[in-house]
Simulated assay, not measured.
Amino acid sequence: MSDNCFLQALDQRRSVPSLQLGAPAPDDATLLRMLQSAVRVPDHGKMVPFRFLRLQGDARHALGEFLAQRSRERDPHAAEAAVEKDRQRFSHAPLVIAVIAHLRDNPKVPAQEQLLTAGCVCFALLQAAQGFGFGAQWLTAWMSEDPAVATHLGLAANERIVGFIHIGTPKIAVPDRDRPDPATLLQDWQP
Rank of each mutant, 00 (worst) to 15 (best):
Val48Pro: 00
Gln69Thr: 15
Leu53Ala: 05
Phe50Lys: 02
Met34Glu: 04
Arg40Trp: 07
Ala78Glu: 04
Asp58Trp: 08
Arg74Thr: 06
Ser71Arg: 09
Ala29Gln: 06
Ala25Cys: 02
Gln20Thr: 04
Pro49Ala: 09
Ala29Ile: 05
Leu55Asp: 07
Glu73Arg: 14
Asp27Ser: 01
Gly45Asn: 10
Arg51Asp: 05
Arg40Ile: 08
Phe66Trp: 00
Leu63Phe: 09
His61Gly: 12
Leu21Glu: 08
Leu21Pro: 00
Gln36Arg: 13
Asp58Arg: 09
Ala68Val: 01
Val48Ser: 13
Ala78Leu: 09
Asp27Thr: 03
His44Ser: 11
Leu31Asp: 00
Leu67His: 03
Ala68Trp: 03
Asp43Phe: 05
Leu53Tyr: 10
Ala29Ser: 11
Ala25Asn: 01
Arg40Met: 10
Asp43Tyr: 01
His77Met: 13
Leu67Trp: 09
Pro26Arg: 04
Ala25Ile: 00
Gly57Ala: 07
Lys46Asn: 15
Leu32Ser: 13
His44Val: 08
Asp58Thr: 09
Ala59Phe: 06
Leu21Thr: 01
His77Cys: 07
Val48Ile: 10
Asp28Arg: 12
Gly64Ile: 00
Thr30Tyr: 05
Ala78His: 05
Phe52His: 12
Pro24Thr: 07
His77Ile: 02
Pro42Glu: 05
Met34Val: 05
